[in-house]
Design a protein around this nucleic acid. Sequence first.
DNA 1: TCGATATTCGAACGATCGTTCGAACCCATG
DNA 2: CATGGGTTCGAACGATCGTTCGAATATCGA
Lengths: 199, 199
Amino acid sequence: MRPYDERLDQFLSRAAKVFADQGYHSTTMRDLAAATGMSLAGMYYYVRGKEELLYRIQDRCFARVLAGAERALTGLADADALERLHAFIRHHVTFFAAHMAEMKVLSHEANSLTGERQRKVSAIKRRYVDLLEGLLKDVAPDEPAVDRSAAAYVLFGMMNWIYNWYDPAGEIDPERLAGLIARIFSGGFAEARSTVHGG
Amino acid sequence: MRPYDERLDQFLSRAAKVFADQGYHSTTMRDLAAATGMSLAGMYYYVRGKEELLYRIQDRCFARVLAGAERALTGLADADALERLHAFIRHHVTFFAAHMAEMKVLSHEANSLTGERQRKVSAIKRRYVDLLEGLLKDVAPDEPAVDRSAAAYVLFGMMNWIYNWYDPAGEIDPERLAGLIARIFSGGFAEARSTVHGG
DNA sequence: TCGATATTCGAACGATCGTTCGAACCCATG
DNA sequence: CATGGGTTCGAACGATCGTTCGAATATCGA
């Protein structure tokens, strides 16, 4: 990788950490300069401005999440619907735990972008939501569409809320947390339909 | 109610709406002045500053949530553990739907307070979390404490994430959403233990 | 009606914000 | 060593922020 790209990458990662700790709006460009070791003016050689910095972080991270999820599902094209759902959950939670800072910025600063950048990130997010809703359709085909859509957001709530409480260095490792969430959701959403109430 | 208190109350409500729409940090005191009809300087007669305004909103709202939850459980002291959990969920979700703006500020701006005010709000939050964890202990006594604690936060994730997607004027009314969440959580968390896997 | 108290506000302050600009620096190539 | 483009940065700009202060206005009991 060219020195430029490498330096940009490191800059984005460190900036994401600061955004995650202090929040986007209350982080100043001077804070970022101090945290990255660059000068105030020097950062503008890599990024057009503060909002583009946020955009670059979100775009890069979201693209990775989406690509990772699709990759996690490619090997399971013929697998059980529930198994594919679990793979999606496991990937999301472990990725989240491994990239807490970026994912916190993604979750918490979802509405801090404007205009074209806002739309571009929303487009990726839309694809990611659609991916999950497709999985839910396979898991619970008889569920009313409106409930299924709500269930998708409820599941995202379980997973994305993580940044408010989860400590990756604590007692629960990411795999166990993913298992807990998968158990709670599929046990309540899928089985309550197909096994208990359904056929 | 004295005119002063009434005006303060209305001021807090309208400010909460602006905070919910624009975010706390990017809302200026001038924005609030325009939204409330007060003058810039006039607001400082009611509130010591911007952060105290956020504190007053959070404190007032959290106190109501906590009191409401306790009230919703008082009549069910001898009821089934699962039934009490459902009552908690139903109260939280319906209160959330009825006070979206304040609750969004509560969820999204949890770390925007500092010092003494931060601690005071955290204390109320702690009591509220403890209330739920107590309910979960009754529902699933055999669950490992660490999983039960995580499950509490997972449930809060389902409910609090609402502000990112839920439209109270949409197809799903709050009661139905509360039912969906209660079904998902208790079906997956409680029953997977006591009914399916447990005894 | 008068005076005291409660409430409102125009105008301004100092601080800090994101951004810009031109010069200085680094370093591979001739 | 000279040169040119890629990279860094000190210093400053205008804008906007939260807050303050003293005066102006509203309210109400005596």
